[in-house]
Design a protein around this nucleic acid. Structure first.
Lengths: 104, 104
DNA sequence: ACTTTTGTGGACATAATTTGTCCAAGGATG
DNA sequence: CATCCTTGGACAAATTATGTCCACAAAAGT
Protein backbone atom coordinates (compact mmCIF):
# COMPACT_ATOMS: atom_id res chain seq x y z
CA UNK A 1 0.00 0.00 0.00
CA UNK A 2 1.53 3.29 -1.07
CA UNK A 3 1.59 6.37 1.08
CA UNK A 4 -0.88 8.04 -1.25
CA UNK A 5 -3.72 5.60 -0.83
CA UNK A 6 -6.74 6.65 1.11
CA UNK A 7 -6.14 5.18 4.50
CA UNK A 8 -5.63 6.49 7.96
CA UNK A 9 -2.22 7.57 9.07
CA UNK A 10 -2.05 4.53 11.27
CA UNK A 11 -2.80 2.19 8.43
CA UNK A 12 -0.15 3.84 6.36
CA UNK A 13 2.42 3.43 9.08
CA UNK A 14 1.45 -0.17 9.51
CA UNK A 15 1.80 -0.76 5.79
CA UNK A 16 5.24 0.79 5.81
CA UNK A 17 6.31 -1.35 8.69
CA UNK A 18 4.92 -4.57 7.27
CA UNK A 19 6.39 -3.90 3.87
CA UNK A 20 9.72 -3.60 5.60
CA UNK A 21 9.01 -6.84 7.45
CA UNK A 22 9.58 -5.28 10.81
CA UNK A 23 7.84 -5.97 14.08
CA UNK A 24 6.16 -3.43 16.29
CA UNK A 25 8.90 -3.99 18.81
CA UNK A 26 11.69 -3.19 16.43
CA UNK A 27 10.17 -0.01 15.09
CA UNK A 28 8.88 1.14 18.45
CA UNK A 29 12.29 0.76 19.97
CA UNK A 30 13.96 2.67 17.19
CA UNK A 31 11.44 5.44 17.50
CA UNK A 32 11.71 5.43 21.24
CA UNK A 33 8.18 4.63 22.24
CA UNK A 34 6.39 1.72 23.83
CA UNK A 35 5.46 -1.20 21.61
CA UNK A 36 1.89 -1.02 22.71
CA UNK A 37 1.71 2.64 21.88
CA UNK A 38 2.92 2.13 18.35
CA UNK A 39 0.31 -0.57 17.93
CA UNK A 40 -2.37 1.77 19.15
CA UNK A 41 -1.17 4.44 16.78
CA UNK A 42 -1.39 2.02 13.88
CA UNK A 43 -4.94 1.20 14.88
CA UNK A 44 -5.76 4.87 15.44
CA UNK A 45 -6.40 4.31 19.10
CA UNK A 46 -3.87 6.98 19.89
CA UNK A 47 -2.90 10.03 17.92
CA UNK A 48 0.82 10.38 17.51
CA UNK A 49 2.41 13.60 18.67
CA UNK A 50 4.30 15.75 16.21
CA UNK A 51 7.55 14.49 17.65
CA UNK A 52 6.49 10.91 17.04
CA UNK A 53 5.47 11.81 13.51
CA UNK A 54 8.92 13.24 12.97
CA UNK A 55 10.55 10.07 14.22
CA UNK A 56 8.39 7.92 11.99
CA UNK A 57 9.09 10.10 8.99
CA UNK A 58 12.79 9.99 9.65
CA UNK A 59 12.79 6.28 10.20
CA UNK A 60 10.92 5.49 7.01
CA UNK A 61 12.55 8.31 5.09
CA UNK A 62 9.32 10.11 4.37
CA UNK A 63 8.49 13.76 4.19
CA UNK A 64 7.56 14.93 7.62
CA UNK A 65 5.13 17.43 6.18
CA UNK A 66 3.20 14.79 4.33
CA UNK A 67 2.75 12.74 7.46
CA UNK A 68 1.67 15.80 9.38
CA UNK A 69 -1.01 16.37 6.82
CA UNK A 70 -2.14 12.81 7.25
CA UNK A 71 -2.39 13.38 10.97
CA UNK A 72 -4.49 16.50 10.71
CA UNK A 73 -6.78 15.03 8.09
CA UNK A 74 -7.19 11.95 10.25
CA UNK A 75 -8.21 14.03 13.21
CA UNK A 76 -10.73 15.95 11.15
CA UNK A 77 -12.13 12.80 9.58
CA UNK A 78 -12.61 11.18 12.96
CA UNK A 79 -14.25 14.29 14.27
CA UNK A 80 -16.77 14.29 11.43
CA UNK A 81 -17.50 10.65 12.06
CA UNK A 82 -17.91 10.82 15.80
CA UNK A 83 -20.05 13.93 15.61
CA UNK A 84 -22.04 12.30 12.88
CA UNK A 85 -21.66 15.48 10.92
CA UNK A 86 -22.60 16.02 7.33
CA UNK A 87 -19.77 15.99 4.80
CA UNK A 88 -20.84 19.47 3.80
CA UNK A 89 -19.56 20.62 7.17
CA UNK A 90 -16.11 20.49 5.64
CA UNK A 91 -17.15 22.92 2.94
CA UNK A 92 -18.42 25.29 5.57
CA UNK A 93 -15.17 24.92 7.44
CA UNK A 94 -13.23 25.72 4.29
CA UNK A 95 -15.13 28.94 3.81
CA UNK A 96 -14.52 29.84 7.41
CA UNK A 97 -10.82 29.31 7.05
CA UNK A 98 -10.79 31.69 4.12
CA UNK A 99 -12.94 34.13 6.01
CA UNK A 100 -10.74 34.04 9.08
CA UNK A 101 -7.61 34.44 7.00
CA UNK A 102 -9.13 37.52 5.39
CA UNK A 103 -9.64 39.32 8.65
CA UNK A 104 -6.01 38.40 9.35
CA UNK B 1 -26.13 39.65 9.59
CA UNK B 2 -28.05 36.54 8.70
CA UNK B 3 -27.30 33.13 10.06
CA UNK B 4 -26.12 32.01 6.65
CA UNK B 5 -23.26 34.41 6.25
CA UNK B 6 -19.75 33.15 6.52
CA UNK B 7 -18.81 33.96 10.04
CA UNK B 8 -17.88 32.03 13.10
CA UNK B 9 -20.56 30.62 15.32
CA UNK B 10 -19.69 33.21 17.91
CA UNK B 11 -20.10 36.05 15.48
CA UNK B 12 -23.43 34.69 14.45
CA UNK B 13 -24.60 34.51 18.02
CA UNK B 14 -23.42 38.02 18.64
CA UNK B 15 -25.27 39.24 15.59
CA UNK B 16 -28.44 37.55 16.77
CA UNK B 17 -28.13 39.12 20.16
CA UNK B 18 -27.35 42.59 18.89
CA UNK B 19 -30.15 42.48 16.38
CA UNK B 20 -32.44 41.72 19.27
CA UNK B 21 -30.92 44.60 21.22
CA UNK B 22 -30.07 42.43 24.15
CA UNK B 23 -27.10 42.62 26.47
CA UNK B 24 -24.72 39.80 27.22
CA UNK B 25 -26.10 39.74 30.74
CA UNK B 26 -29.68 39.28 29.66
CA UNK B 27 -28.98 36.47 27.26
CA UNK B 28 -26.44 34.78 29.47
CA UNK B 29 -28.86 34.71 32.34
CA UNK B 30 -31.64 33.27 30.23
CA UNK B 31 -29.30 30.61 28.95
CA UNK B 32 -27.99 29.92 32.39
CA UNK B 33 -24.32 30.70 31.91
CA UNK B 34 -21.94 33.36 33.11
CA UNK B 35 -21.91 36.66 31.27
CA UNK B 36 -18.21 36.44 30.71
CA UNK B 37 -18.54 33.00 29.24
CA UNK B 38 -21.11 34.10 26.70
CA UNK B 39 -18.82 36.94 25.73
CA UNK B 40 -15.97 34.54 25.26
CA UNK B 41 -18.16 32.28 23.18
CA UNK B 42 -19.10 35.18 20.94
CA UNK B 43 -15.42 35.96 20.48
CA UNK B 44 -14.56 32.29 19.98
CA UNK B 45 -12.43 32.21 23.07
CA UNK B 46 -14.48 29.36 24.35
CA UNK B 47 -16.32 26.67 22.44
CA UNK B 48 -19.88 26.23 23.59
CA UNK B 49 -20.96 22.81 24.70
CA UNK B 50 -23.77 21.05 22.93
CA UNK B 51 -26.06 21.89 25.79
CA UNK B 52 -25.23 25.55 25.45
CA UNK B 53 -25.83 25.36 21.73
CA UNK B 54 -29.23 23.89 22.45
CA UNK B 55 -30.06 26.70 24.80
CA UNK B 56 -28.96 29.31 22.31
CA UNK B 57 -30.94 27.69 19.53
CA UNK B 58 -34.00 27.52 21.70
CA UNK B 59 -33.63 31.06 22.86
CA UNK B 60 -33.26 32.50 19.38
CA UNK B 61 -35.65 30.00 17.85
CA UNK B 62 -33.10 28.50 15.52
CA UNK B 63 -32.55 24.98 14.37
CA UNK B 64 -30.30 23.26 16.80
CA UNK B 65 -28.83 21.16 14.03
CA UNK B 66 -27.74 24.19 12.05
CA UNK B 67 -25.95 25.64 15.03
CA UNK B 68 -24.29 22.33 15.74
CA UNK B 69 -22.96 22.33 12.23
CA UNK B 70 -21.59 25.80 12.78
CA UNK B 71 -19.85 24.58 15.88
CA UNK B 72 -18.16 21.64 14.22
CA UNK B 73 -17.12 23.66 11.20
CA UNK B 74 -15.72 26.31 13.50
CA UNK B 75 -13.65 23.77 15.34
CA UNK B 76 -12.30 22.35 12.11
CA UNK B 77 -11.55 25.78 10.70
CA UNK B 78 -9.63 26.79 13.81
CA UNK B 79 -7.71 23.56 13.73
CA UNK B 80 -6.63 24.17 10.15
CA UNK B 81 -5.54 27.65 11.07
CA UNK B 82 -3.63 26.84 14.20
CA UNK B 83 -1.89 23.89 12.57
CA UNK B 84 -1.14 26.07 9.61
CA UNK B 85 -2.44 23.29 7.44
CA UNK B 86 -3.09 23.44 3.76
CA UNK B 87 -6.72 23.81 2.68
CA UNK B 88 -6.30 20.62 0.72
CA UNK B 89 -6.11 18.83 4.04
CA UNK B 90 -9.89 19.11 4.13
CA UNK B 91 -10.16 17.25 0.86
CA UNK B 92 -8.01 14.49 2.24
CA UNK B 93 -10.18 14.39 5.33
CA UNK B 94 -13.27 14.10 3.18
CA UNK B 95 -11.87 11.09 1.38
CA UNK B 96 -10.96 9.52 4.67
CA UNK B 97 -14.46 9.97 5.99
CA UNK B 98 -15.80 8.15 2.98
CA UNK B 99 -13.15 5.50 3.32
CA UNK B 100 -13.87 4.95 6.98
CA UNK B 101 -17.60 4.79 6.37
CA UNK B 102 -17.02 2.12 3.73
CA UNK B 103 -15.25 -0.23 6.09
CA UNK B 104 -18.25 0.37 8.39
C1' DA C 1 -20.49 64.94 37.04
C1' DC C 2 -22.14 60.88 38.94
C1' DT C 3 -24.16 56.37 38.56
C1' DT C 4 -25.27 52.37 36.14
C1' DT C 5 -24.71 49.27 32.67
C1' DT C 6 -21.92 46.88 29.37
C1' DG C 7 -18.26 44.17 27.41
C1' DT C 8 -13.50 42.43 27.99
C1' DG C 9 -9.70 40.09 30.00
C1' DG C 10 -6.83 37.94 33.42
C1' DA C 11 -6.33 34.47 36.91
C1' DC C 12 -7.59 30.46 38.62
C1' DA C 13 -9.73 26.04 40.40
C1' DT C 14 -12.07 22.34 38.48
C1' DA C 15 -13.25 19.16 35.06
C1' DA C 16 -12.57 16.49 31.10
C1' DT C 17 -9.73 14.47 27.80
C1' DT C 18 -5.54 12.42 26.13
C1' DT C 19 -1.23 10.17 26.64
C1' DG C 20 1.98 6.68 27.64
C1' DT C 21 3.21 2.58 30.21
C1' DC C 22 2.72 -1.77 32.36
C1' DC C 23 1.13 -6.10 32.22
C1' DA C 24 -1.68 -10.05 30.95
C1' DA C 25 -3.36 -12.90 27.43
C1' DG C 26 -4.23 -14.86 22.87
C1' DG C 27 -2.26 -16.17 18.23
C1' DA C 28 0.85 -17.35 15.11
C1' DT C 29 5.31 -19.28 13.91
C1' DG C 30 8.79 -22.43 14.25
C1' DC D 1 6.19 -26.62 23.68
C1' DA D 2 8.76 -22.10 23.45
C1' DT D 3 9.22 -17.81 21.39
C1' DC D 4 7.94 -13.80 19.24
C1' DC D 5 4.22 -10.81 18.08
C1' DT D 6 0.10 -8.06 18.69
C1' DT D 7 -3.85 -6.54 21.24
C1' DG D 8 -6.38 -4.74 25.05
C1' DG D 9 -7.45 -3.23 29.65
C1' DA D 10 -6.30 -0.46 33.53
C1' DC D 11 -4.34 3.33 35.27
C1' DA D 12 -1.39 7.39 36.69
C1' DA D 13 0.31 11.40 34.69
C1' DA D 14 0.12 15.06 31.67
C1' DT D 15 -2.21 18.16 28.90
C1' DT D 16 -6.05 20.87 27.56
C1' DA D 17 -10.57 22.94 28.15
C1' DT D 18 -14.18 24.86 30.94
C1' DG D 19 -16.54 28.02 33.80
C1' DT D 20 -16.46 31.55 37.35
C1' DC D 21 -14.97 35.45 39.83
C1' DC D 22 -13.41 39.80 39.81
C1' DA D 23 -11.58 44.19 38.28
C1' DC D 24 -11.48 47.57 34.92
C1' DA D 25 -12.52 50.70 31.08
C1' DA D 26 -15.71 52.48 27.95
C1' DA D 27 -20.31 53.82 26.94
C1' DA D 28 -25.01 55.15 28.21
C1' DG D 29 -28.24 57.07 31.15
C1' DT D 30 -29.86 60.56 34.50
Amino acid sequence: MGINKVATLGEQVRALREDAKLSLREVAEKIGIDTSLLGKIERSERQPTKEQIKSVAKYFKLEEKALLKELISDQIAYKILEENADLDTLKVAERKVQYLKMKQ
